[in-house]
Amino acid sequence: MMPIESLSQLDLLIRMMVLGQLLLLGGLVLREPASRLRLLLLACGLSVAGLVMLTAPIPDEQYGLLRNVLLILTDAFAFIFWLLICHLFEDDFNPGKWPTPVKWLLGLFGLVYLYALGIQAGGSILHDLIHAISLGLVLHAAYIAWRGFKADLLDTRRRARVMVVLGITLYSTILVIFEFADERYRNAAVFGLFNATFLLLITTIAVARTFRLQYEPGKPAAEIAATERQEIARPQPGDSQPTLVRHQSEWSPADARLSKALDSFIAECGYHQHGLTISGLASQLNCPEHRLRRLINQTRGYRNFNSMLNDLRVADARERLVDPAYDDKPILSIALDLGYDSIGPFNRAFKAKTEQTPSEFRGDIQNRR
């Protein structure tokens, strides 16, 4: 077996390589215009860099005050990771619309977080509480990725969801659990080397992927960017109809037939079916599921099947709530007629589209008559 000193030296070498990869990734991200996604990626990179340095085979006393800073960066990973997963997989995710009390509570938690790690250096029960919250956030991120898998219309995002559930989430959970283990196991040289090696693998894959997207041979960067925009295009808030990404002249005969069948299905209000899924619709239209996913995304502009259903159903709901003939019909009955299984999902979908509940919308209409 390799001596502990040799393991430590190899561990340090690998960690230096990881830091180099992170610097390279940071440079690639900073080349593009700022966005919420790029800021989250940079924050993730800083957090991982803190983890790489903090868990290196170096005595804690040699860090000095730097250890507190690294501790803050390291333990922030679960929070940043959760925000990143929400941003990537939840199309309606918008922290700016969170209620004011929630924002105040988060601000208070931020102060406690800085105090527990920056002042107390993790030497109190507050640190254990932060670890428990971190574990909950990581597991919830896995749930978010799993929950939206079936309805996701983007193949790249579907693969990313699987990677999150099976890879990153499992690894992050193991790290958090290790924080509760005995120090002799948590600081074992073999575990540290494994940790560094795994991070090197992940960062190498990330760098290779980034370079391939930006500098793929035979495919100009502008064309790659256009392809990515086409794939992830979606309706903007306030749009009455989703954006058509591909013109009809670009459709294949099979896509044209499928689009016509989908139009007929929508015209007949087939989307009022209860429990309708993308796989169920593909069966009814007698087409491969992957083809239907791609067609809805590229010709209707949706990234999520449930978003399309909600838009269609809410549009019908608004027509019925405006119609005096439906004044005496309970809102629950309208929701059930439109394909919802309960009032809760209907209320959330309606408010997300109109910024009013169905009851508020109906009341405003009736007051204007």
Rank of each mutant, 00 (worst) to 15 (best):
L7A: 10
L10M: 13
M17Q: 15
V29D: 10
R31I: 08
R36I: 10
A49Q: 00
V52G: 01
L54F: 07
I58C: 03
I58V: 15
E61I: 12
I72C: 10
T74F: 09
A78W: 03
L83N: 10
I85H: 04
E90P: 05
D92I: 02
G96W: 14
G96T: 12
G96P: 02
K97E: 15
K97M: 12
V102C: 12
L105Q: 11
G107D: 06
L111P: 00
L117N: 01
G118L: 04
I119Y: 10
S124E: 01
L129Q: 04
L137C: 02
I144Q: 07
I144E: 04
W146T: 06
R147G: 02
R147A: 15
K150I: 14
K150L: 14
D152Q: 12
R159E: 13
M163I: 13
L175D: 08
R186N: 05
N195K: 11
I205C: 13
A206E: 00
V207D: 01
T210W: 03
F211L: 14
Q214A: 14
R229C: 08
R229G: 07
Q241H: 14
V245T: 07
H247E: 15
E250M: 09
S252Q: 09
A254C: 05
D255A: 14
L262A: 05
L262S: 05
F265G: 05
A267I: 00
H272C: 14
G275Y: 05
L276A: 02
A282G: 04
A282C: 00
R293K: 09
T299Q: 11
G301D: 00
R303D: 03
D311I: 06
D316K: 02
A317I: 02
R320D: 07
V322C: 10
D327K: 09
D328W: 11
L332K: 14
G339C: 05
D341K: 13
G344A: 13
P345K: 04
F346K: 03
F350T: 01
E355A: 14
Q356A: 09
P358R: 02
E360Y: 07
G363Q: 14
